[in-house]
Design a protein around this nucleic acid. Sequence first.
DNA 1: TTATATCTTTTGTCTTATATAAGACTGTAG
DNA 2: CTACAGTCTTATATAAGACAAAAGATATAA
Lengths: 246, 246
Amino acid sequence: MIKRQGLMKKLAAQPLYKQVIREVMTAVEAGEWHDDENLPSEVELGVRFGVSQGTVRKALDSLVNEGVLYRRQGVGTFVAGMNDFLARGLFQPLTGEDGLTPKIELLGCVRIHAGEQLADILGLRRGAALWQVRRLLRVAGNVIGLEEMLLPEAGFPNLDIRRIRELKGNLRELCWRDFGIRLRDGEVRYRAVAASQSEARLLMVDLNEPLLQLVRLARDFEGKPQVWSVAWLKTDTLAFEPAPFA
Amino acid sequence: MIKRQGLMKKLAAQPLYKQVIREVMTAVEAGEWHDDENLPSEVELGVRFGVSQGTVRKALDSLVNEGVLYRRQGVGTFVAGMNDFLARGLFQPLTGEDGLTPKIELLGCVRIHAGEQLADILGLRRGAALWQVRRLLRVAGNVIGLEEMLLPEAGFPNLDIRRIRELKGNLRELCWRDFGIRLRDGEVRYRAVAASQSEARLLMVDLNEPLLQLVRLARDFEGKPQVWSVAWLKTDTLAFEPAPFA
DNA sequence: TTATATCTTTTGTCTTATATAAGACTGTAG
DNA sequence: CTACAGTCTTATATAAGACAAAAGATATAA
């Protein structure tokens, strides 16, 4: 039961609906409800947290807005299946609204050490151990993207290639199921760059071919940087647009 | 005064808050309140439309979310100054969070005829008259972007270079102030392309230099396509990210 | 068996009451 | 007269409760 605000003013209690957001979020992270399984009704949640349906509703509103949940009138509220960290947000193939679902192929996962710049970005000391994960994105068999991710080893101990392969590219799910880190979407930055030798080889394009580069820093819900990722995309046949929310 | 829903069920009346959204939107479009001028209070608006404060609030919520309005607790609700059609959405210079405000330079505005493809996109017949507007984007004096817009002449009669120049790049404002067309943000598609001869010349880069290409189709609130625009950006020194909402 | 009505559960909408925030105003100590 | 602290006023923000609408599930009649 959430305590009513205002009883202890000096503690700067958060509004009830924000407390409910946290509670529900925690429950979702804890896996209390499966993906696409419906939550208890708003009224039931209200009883559980000691608030009204309207307050639960306001809380769920914001989670729906963030894409964590989705609703169907007269039916229920559901946990939004964790879309792939890649597929949602970074990659959203546009051409042909038919779902050209991308396939993701793991290239490798190695342990490296942070350079000055990376250490700075991720808020680590220089030389800190990092995992470098590289993946290839295919649509209809054709290679169209390359992705490189960097995660601090400290936050993700024992990350190995097998675990990554198991979940078909769904990094977000791995992060909270195995490491208790829930990723928020970070902002993505877009650049056009010329393909370097290695990118050209992997993407099977000519050297200096224009590639769309996406760079993102994903943070957890406390705002701490957790995953740095860069992707290079061929956009000669497909264009990309930022993922729309449900 | 908005009619209470449910009185005439068969008319499929929209919920009150949606009606309020339309009313407020119309008033904003009509210029009833200036940019950054505050609207009447939620209670007053409630009286005006014959609904409660809570309902007005729900309506304003969505307009705030869309970026049309912004709020300050204890102070009021304001019309969000129309950000430039370019600056908001298409261009959002990232590097250095200090507002490197872009300057926009008009290159020209000419009347052309729609090719098959364009006619199709804009929902016009082939050969329909179009305005082609080209603009240059500068940040700190350096040219970093080129934009080309195409608008049907039918919807924008008497569009001339002077009128465009007057409003410092603010196409959206022109659209509704002069032509009664309120643009919604359309989705933007991102591509990396090699600079063509003309782009290279205007942007002062080498031929085939990688450029970030943004393509957008802006629609009005009825969903009718109104403006087709393409932009080419140099991203060697600046990166771009989609505009965050207030 | 099939279509239709009604019941139940769930989300969606709307109002009312109250809390919180921010300026403006005002009286007072210095 | 000025600086400062209270308080008043007017905003938005939050919370609860009543009711509407939608979607299945179930029962019922042809």
